[in-house]
């Protein structure tokens, strides 16, 4: 996938990355992100194990030193590769990570939606007090998320586009755009080449696979 960072003036910076995810059976998911560009970070990789309860585990591999660094849990609210996405936007999406409240029904972009608020269970490590999510009633796809910072001020808005259905059951967005209202920067994620049931196993998500990721 491709991430385009834009600042206020419209200057662009591009990052290319790939990701693999393994759905957890009892616990959360495992995922591996591999960076292809900018070239100076090529070969860096990020491994995360999300847990339904408790802190997620995260490691970063730095190819120049062949070194695996553990990342402290608190980092999940930090910026992902200088973008307006936080690490926690990429991980930590287990149902158990939040408590939920229905707010209202609303039509969003001609679709009947539920508007739901969710509150992080681990308030200490999340950068948000709450998120407001627009879900369509038909397929439960997320179209828009408002993120409120620790002072409960509107921080960011995520908008999803280009949903397509895979394997006749998985809806996936082709474009995710995050707008930061406070610094007026945007980050756009363009996702191509979705592949499902590729035969990944736990062995594709350990420190060995992190180190040999290219």
């Amino acid at each position: 996938m491709r991430m385009i960072l834009r600042n206020k003036k419209g200057d662009e910076s591009i990052r290319e990355l790939r990701t693999k995810t393994l759905e957890g059976k009892e616990d959360g998911d495992k995922s591996l992100l591999i960076f292809d560009s900018p070239k100076d970070v090529q070969g860096s990789a990020f491994l995360s194990f999300t847990h339904k309860k408790g802190d997620d585990d995260q490691w970063l591999y730095l190819p120049a030193l062949k070194r695996v660094k553990r990342i402290s849990t608190r980092n999940q609210s930090g910026s992902f590769m200088g973008s307006e996405f936080a690490y926690e936007d990429f991980t930590s999406q287990e149902i158990e990570k939040y408590t939920y409240q229905w707010i209202r029904d609303e039509v969003y972009q001609e679709k009947e939606c539920f508007v739901v608020e969710r509150y992080p269970v681990n308030k200490k490590y999340s950068g948000y007090t709450r998120q407001v999510v627009w879900l369509d009633k038909e397929e439960y796809r997320e179209w828009k998320i408002d993120y409120y910072d620790r002072k409960d001020k509107l921080l960011k808005t995520l908008m999803a586009e280009g949903y397509e259905k895979y394997l006749d059951k998985h809806w996936r967005a082709g474009k995710l755009k995050m707008v930061n209202h406070q610094n007026e920067k945007t980050s756009e994620l363009l996702i191509t080449n979705y592949a499902f049931q590729t035969g990944l196993t736990d062995e594709d998500f350990n420190q060995n696979s992190l180190k040999r990721a290219k």
């Binding site: 998911d29 070239k39 991980t91 809806w171 967005a173 196993t201 290219k214």
Partner: peptide
């Protein structure tokens, strides 16, 4: 059997975006 399904990024992404099977890369500084 292990499946890959909809989870992970924002709950809306969850995926594998794979490189082509055989890879040839030339890089450096």
């Amino acid at each position: 059997k292990t499946r890959i399904i909809a989870t992970g990024f924002l709950g809306v992404v969850g995926l594998v975006t794979l490189a082509p099977a055989a890879v040839d890369k030339f890089s450096g500084y």
